[in-house]
Design a protein around this nucleic acid. Sequence first.
DNA 1: CATGAATGAGTTTTCATTCAT
DNA 2: GATGAATGAAAACTCATTCAT
Lengths: 197, 197, 197, 197
Amino acid sequence: MGRKIVQEERRLQIIEALYACLLKKPFKETSIKDIARAAGVNHGVLHYYFTGKEEILLTFLDHVILKYKTDFYEYMAAHTTAESTPRQVVSQMFNFVNHRITLDRRLSRIFVEIWEIGLYDKKVRSKLRTVYEEWIEAAREVIMRAVKNETLARRMSVSLVAFLEGMAMLSVILEPTQAESAETLAAFQKRIIDMLG
Amino acid sequence: MGRKIVQEERRLQIIEALYACLLKKPFKETSIKDIARAAGVNHGVLHYYFTGKEEILLTFLDHVILKYKTDFYEYMAAHTTAESTPRQVVSQMFNFVNHRITLDRRLSRIFVEIWEIGLYDKKVRSKLRTVYEEWIEAAREVIMRAVKNETLARRMSVSLVAFLEGMAMLSVILEPTQAESAETLAAFQKRIIDMLG
Amino acid sequence: MGRKIVQEERRLQIIEALYACLLKKPFKETSIKDIARAAGVNHGVLHYYFTGKEEILLTFLDHVILKYKTDFYEYMAAHTTAESTPRQVVSQMFNFVNHRITLDRRLSRIFVEIWEIGLYDKKVRSKLRTVYEEWIEAAREVIMRAVKNETLARRMSVSLVAFLEGMAMLSVILEPTQAESAETLAAFQKRIIDMLG
Amino acid sequence: MGRKIVQEERRLQIIEALYACLLKKPFKETSIKDIARAAGVNHGVLHYYFTGKEEILLTFLDHVILKYKTDFYEYMAAHTTAESTPRQVVSQMFNFVNHRITLDRRLSRIFVEIWEIGLYDKKVRSKLRTVYEEWIEAAREVIMRAVKNETLARRMSVSLVAFLEGMAMLSVILEPTQAESAETLAAFQKRIIDMLG
DNA sequence: CATGAATGAGTTTTCATTCAT
DNA sequence: GATGAATGAAAACTCATTCAT
């Protein structure tokens, strides 16, 4: 019993160490020993709790995804009610996404890193695919309440996610001020909200 | 005389080999010997023509950027005239960007790879910054002819580039059909053209 | 506990292997793998215990220096007393230096090697400087007991060390018999002892 | 005819380049291309005029030795006559050796380098052996004129050469001022001259 | 379970040497 | 003769992984 919990804590400790490492170095250049050092454990331990570097990354990814998904639904539950208009719901969705995801430059950096890994790693790509499909689907559902057009809602949600991820990438490369990015996001999203009628 | 040409050809041969390698493996996992093998030359040659792996990448990047920039201006010159309306010009710009860049999945993959490298490599990031700034600027100029509003034109061009790059990334991860992506692009761009009045 | 000892033993084993290698090849031509082979360990081990080739050399140097310094003071303690005359003390010093250092051709070879490394390597030169300054100082102190003249004692000790090291070098190049060298050393040193009055 | 001269000039040009290189880097780290660059010629040329790096060094050594030998005999011829006393001759010998050899730190550095090479390279060691034997013999002859004792003269000359080379080495490692070294040399040599009666 | 010593494959880089032009 | 392109062997170093204690 306690065993399993200790195990889970150790694994958590390790994936948090990976997060810290990824802020400094690309995954490829992050050695098992780097992660172990950051986690404050012996490097042998990592091979005990994980089958290898890849599994650490995959587990890390699962945790990040779960965390943001949970946060999203909690946020939406806290900021919208059954009476909220579609525009209000969409607006709250933008609030969450902007501040918790797109404008979080550290997260953006890590995601650019993960996209790249996903290019060549099937398992990572598969997880990313699920994330984006789920995200697009969530957006589509919210949008559908306003536009009532499947195809249009789907396209709008895909475009939205593409735009947001593109902004995340550009913010990492161009390093504009938060304000600049926030304004561009706001202007774009205002258009969308206007379209919802 | 012939010497300089041989040099340039060899360098070209090598960066083309890098291109081929990047379709299979991330840059970090692509060894000098891999590139040499792909180029059909001895690995020592790569150190003769380049100071190291990084310079090969940087040169590759320069070539790619130059190629697309040249192609873009040639395309625009061939497809627009002084009499073209702003909408026609923007429309042609979309034509080029969609088919030659955003929907070219191989190019998209390579750019995701380069974004990631730029995360930690100053020189690469600096080149990327220039590319995106130039691209945004080019789009802004074209858009300005229609909207006559600096701030708006800038925001629209940033949003456009973010959207296109986001679409490129999503197409790499989600691997939708060309048609799907093309439709999403078209729908989005139609909105923009409509906005130009 | 045992861990630290294993570490120290391995390091010792490795620097002893370096000693053996230096009898055969110059340091520059001695590869990490050569040293590993001589030590009977995997080459990776050398990178585990040392940061690189230079550190192995520096550690080796420290050990050699410490060993001879310790031996010297032990020898002097064993062969002289508070009642020994200055001449007797100087004589014992010569005994030690001749047999343990100057006439040890293997040591001489290694020191010629180290001189050369010190030519271009600051850390090695710095260590050599300390060694020679200490040696000159030790000789000066002993000589001072007899000549009571600072300048003279200093010059005599510098000359002595220069002569001894020159003899070491010549013995390496000319490869005379031990006897020849010993006689030259004895004759020279007899002069010095005579000078002490 | 002219051919041979051109050849000889090229070879000279190359060994002078080696001299320049040796002031900066150890021989082992000096590449053929380094020497070629210093000589202002194509690296292929070096393989045309020499069979390899070693032959360049050997030729260089021959030239240095010849130069100093010639200079020495010229100097002695210019500064002594048949009427000069043995003490005067020895004194002039010291003058030459001190200023042209022992106190020339650049030459000393290069000789430390060459000693080291001679440790492991038979041909170089053989040349060095000849040099030192000749030098000792030259000194012995001069000293013999005063002391009339074969064994003593031999020992004195060996000691002298050992001392001078030891001083050269120490000056390279300890980097004392020229004055300090000159004084130590003078004091030592005064003793010798006094011994000559 | 934890530790850290050991392994060995793999990477970038340097360079003497060769050789076609 | 001169040039510089090409070769391939060898170097230092890194690191995921294994395993005995």
